[in-house]
Design a protein around this nucleic acid. Structure first.
Lengths: 115, 115
DNA sequence: AGAACATTTGCACAATTGCTCAAATGAGAA
DNA sequence: TTCTCATTTGAGCAATTGTGCAAATGTTCT
């Protein structure tokens, strides 16, 4: 790691205050995993597509132009992180966004980047 | 890549509709980079700390327990992606969240993960 | 039972990422 | 100018990640 810079003494109070308000490490890790799920082009494409409607693995492969396998791998990540939900219907598995927060976050980002 | 599954014919209309509504690739890449910035523990810690107040590189090194260099590398990522802003004051460089969307997104995620 | 098709999973590998270290740059004080 | 301290930058390296391939699993139909 590294040595502490000299301003540390001056900023000591401020630093202590911020440290205290910071969420605990476990929550931060969980939160990073949450965002990380949106931070890959393939997964994001999947999520944007699911904003429109429920879709199966094969549909998503079609839409993204990636192999079914690649999509399935990424769907697993999204499933594990509770960002998408799914239901089986016969041979197909249909995926959808897990809850309204997901849609909300996607919308804010779209607005932020000035769609 | 891969072959198309047989449902394609049945779902053709649906797929075309979703494809049409999807943002263009450039925007999707930009958006993925945006989210990716939040998707790393170090960068997320930086952002959560900056929710409280403006802080310099050295403060952030202190708060996160990481080397000044590591923090600086990550600040560059956040700067490049327009997620933080900065101003120089003497020897120090103070960073702050770039705009209200950033704070809003962090708040929704905190709420979503049930803080 | 078997065949057909959608999906998932494990493995392997290329590409990317985050960190440390050391050197460079910026800025104020002497 | 030189000294000192905060910050940035580039190189190198270990660790992680995303994908395709091939095999396995799940489900329906005959």
């Amino acid at each position: 790691m590294a040595e502490v810079c000299k301003v540390h003494e001056e900023h000591e109070e401020k630093i202590a205050k911020v440290k205290e308000k910071l969420p605990n490490d476990e929550l931060i890790v969980e939160m990073a995993n949450f965002f990380d799920a949106f931070g890959d082009v393939t997964r994001l494409k999947i999520l944007l597509a699911l904003m429109e409607e429920e879709l199966c693995t094969c549909d998503l492969s079609n839409i993204t132009g990636l192999s079914v396998s690649a999509i399935s791998h990424q769907l697993r990540v999204l499933k594990d992180r509770r960002i998408v939900n799914y239901r089986r219907e016969g041979k197909n598995v249909f995926y959808r966004l897990d809850d309204e927060h997901i849609r909300e976050i996607l919308k804010i980002a779209l607005k932020h980047l000035g769609e």
